[in-house]
Write a protein that binds this DNA or RNA. Structure first.
Lengths: 162, 162
DNA sequence: TCAAGATTGATGCACTTGCATTGAAATTGC
DNA sequence: GCAATTTCAATGCAAGTGCATCAATCTTGA
C-alpha cells in the first residue's frame, strides 16, 4: 500500500506559528506607536519611500512598488496619491508606457526618510534588537528566510538609511 | 569618563527585523487567503472564538478578550457585535458588573472553530510548517518568545482545536 | 458617605482597506 | 495587421480601523 499521508503540522510547529503571529504583531505595533509619537507617518510610507530611494534614479513604476512591498495594487495606487499630496513623491506619466505612471522621490521625501530613520532605528532596537544577541539575530534572519519565496539562505536585504 | 553610549541596532538585527516584517506578513496573508477561499471568516474571528472556548465556561468579558488578543478595545467591541450578529457568540449583561457584558460562545461558534481548524491547520503546514524541521520550529518558538512580555522561555501556548 | 477618579463598553467621524470593475494601453497569437 | 488577451492604474462602494469621546458603573480615599 502506498502511504498517502499528507503531512500535518506538528504541535511544535503550531506553537511556533502562534508565536510568530503574536510576537510580530506586538513588536510591530510598538514600533508604529513610536513613529507616530514622534509625529511621523506609518511604516508603510517609509517602506515605499525607501524602495524609491533604492531604485535606479529614485523612481519606480507603481507596479514595481507593488512587487517590492507586498501592498495590494489598489493600496499602492492610493498610498502613492497620499504621498504625492504630501509632497514626498511626484507622479509623472511614463514616457515608454502610455498606461503607466512613474513615481519619483522628491527632496522632501528624501528628507523624511532621513528624519525617520533615527527614530525608526531606535524603535527597532528598543522593541526588537535589545532582546537578541548577534547570533540570535542571525538565526532569526536565517529561519525566517525559509518562508520567503526565492530567497537564498545567505541573501541579505539592507534597510539601512545611510 | 562614563560611557553613556546608547546601544544601537546592529546591521544583523536590522536585517532580522526587516525579515520578520516581510515573512510574517507574507505567511499570514497566504493563510488568510486559504481561509477565505474555504469560505471562512478572517483569523481574528477564530482567535476570539478560540479565546472564548479556552476560557472558563466558554465566556469572557470583552475587556478580557482585549487583553488576550491584542485587539484594540473598540475593535473588540465591534468584532463581538459582528460575531453576535452571525450567531457565533451571545452577548449578555454581566450579573456582577452593571457596566459590563459577558460574551458566550454558542454551539454555532463552537462548530465554526471545529470546521475552521482543519483548514487552518493545513494552511499553517503548507505556508509555514513545511519549511521547518521540528528543531527549527522549536528554535523559532524560543527566539520569538523573547519579544513577548512576561513569557518564560519554556512556556508554551496551545492553539490546537482538540 | 460621598465626591473624585478609574474602568467598561459603545459610537460618531474620518480615514483606510478590500473587492470588483473600469478604461486605457501594451502584448500575444493567428 | 488586427482581434483577443493581458497588464497597468484608478475608483465607487462596502466594510473595517483609529481616534476621540461619551454614558454608565465601579472603586478609592478622605
Amino acid at each position: 500500500m502506498i502511504d498517502e499521508t499528507i503531512e500535518e503540522a506538528s504541535p511544535a510547529k503550531i506553537e511556533a506559528w502562534a508565536r510568530l503571529l503574536r510576537s510580530s504583531a506586538t513588536v510591530l505595533e510598538q514600533v508604529e506607536i513610536k513613529l507616530k509619537a514622534a509625529g511621523f507617518p506609518p511604516l508603510a510610507w517609509y517602506d515605499v519611500l525607501l524602495e524609491l530611494r533604492r531604485a535606479e534614479g529614485g523612481r519606480l513604476r507603481p507596479v514595481e512598488v507593488e512587487k517590492r512591498t507586498l501592498l495590494a495594487q489598489y493600496n499602492v495606487s492610493r498610498l502613492i496619491d497620499r504621498l504625492a499630496s504630501a509632497g514626498f513623491v511626484e507622479k509623472r506619466k511614463s514616457p515608454e508606457d502610455g498606461r503607466g505612471v512613474v513615481v519619483a522621490l522628491t527632496a522632501k521625501g528624501s528628507s523624511l526618510l532621513e528624519d525617520m530613520w533615527p527614530v525608526y532605528k531606535s524603535a527597532i532596537q528598543s522593541e526588537f534588537g535589545c532582546h537578541l544577541s548577534e547570533d540570535e539575530a542571525a538565526e532569526i534572519f536565517r529561519l525566517l528566510g525559509k518562508f520567503l519565496p526565492g530567497e537564498q539562505a545567505g541573501y541579505r536585504q539592507d534597510i539601512e538609511n545611510k
